[in-house]
């Protein structure tokens, strides 16, 4: 690896070590996925019983729960990127983040990856155990690696959106409102609360036309019903969104740096 690449690897590794400084936080987070999935389990069990069908919109109860398990894992493992950037702008520590010889966005990317990987592992393990023990075995093993690839792409798309929101702090300082909106949009149009398949057709079409579905729904849906064609389509769509949002982010960053005002004298 080149020295330039090595520095981002070192940043990633340091954040990974840093993650172990908070074992309590890691465990608490895995606990929250168990609670969420437990609630979902009762909710959907009742729903399926009430409808009286084996499958709703092509998904069985087992599919739905494994879908939700991956969706929750993805969302709960995300780094708190927007608010981290906003906080750094507010308390002035951005000064340190900007005067080191690295690309600020790649730095955030490396830190974010180091932050997410542990959580992803813990959440998947905790959530998988619960769902596996209550509704039955996971989807076929051969789909897992394909899913993992799309999870990484989903993570990157989310990174672009969250970083874009975070960068608005260079001007507005506070990003809580944007963050809140993004979170709620992910809940519904991202498919975090309900698989998009259960939506009316027009709403599905709206969701599919926006990037949020590819940060959660795409990988989770592929996971429960792995399919080569579905994988390729998803990955291409993710790639297109990634290119567009990545470009927007890079552009915004170049502009944003000139607008930056720093607090603390």
């Amino acid at each position: 690896m080149s020295r330039r690449g090595l520095k981002y690897w070192a940043i990633f590794k340091t954040q990974l070590i840093n993650g172990f400084a908070y074992p309590g936080d890691l465990l608490a987070r895995s606990l929250s996925i168990i609670i969420f999935l437990w609630v979902f389990l009762f909710l959907w069990r009742t729903t399926y019983r009430a409808v009286g069908q084996e499958r709703i919109a092509g998904l069985s109860l087992r599919d739905t729960l494994w879908y939700l398990m991956l969706a929750e894992t993805i969302v709960l493992s995300k780094p708190r990127l927007s608010s981290t950037i906003a906080e750094a702008v507010r308390d002035g520590s951005i000064a340190y983040l900007l005067n080191k010889p690295y690309n600020f966005l790649l730095y955030q990317l490396s830190v974010g990856l180091g932050d997410s990987i542990l959580r992803l592992a813990f959440n998947a393990l905790a959530g998988g155990l619960l769902v596996g023990l209550t509704v039955g075995p996971p989807p076929p093993l051969w789909g897992w690696p394909l899913t993992l690839v799309t999870v990484i792409a989903a993570w990157l798309i989310d990174f672009c959106i969250a970083a874009t929101i975070g960068l608005t702090a260079f001007v507005t300082e506070d990003v809580a409102a944007f963050e809140w909106i993004y979170q709620k949009v992910t809940f519904i149009l991202g498919g975090l609360l309900i698989p998009l398949d259960f939506f009316p057709a027009w709403l599905q079409a709206v969701a599919q036309a926006l990037p949020f579905a590819y940060t959660v729904y795409g990988p989770a849906r592929l996971f429960v019903e792995p399919d080569g064609g579905r994988f390729v389509t998803l990955l291409l769509t993710q790639g297109a969104w990634l290119a567009a949002l990545g470009m927007l982010l890079a552009l915004l960053y170049r502009k944003g740096v000139t607008w930056l005002t720093i607090n603390g004298g």
Partner: peptide, 30 residues
């Protein structure tokens, strides 16, 4: 080519021993 310290803001990683940040900075400065 320059070094900076802002007295009111830490640049060392708060939860890690200083040596970890030293090594990280070493890598960052290639």
């Amino acid at each position: 080519r320059i070094g900076t310290v802002f007295g009111q803001r830490p640049q060392l990683w708060y939860h890690l021993p200083a040596i970890d940040t030293f090594y990280l900075f070493g890598k960052i400065y290639e």
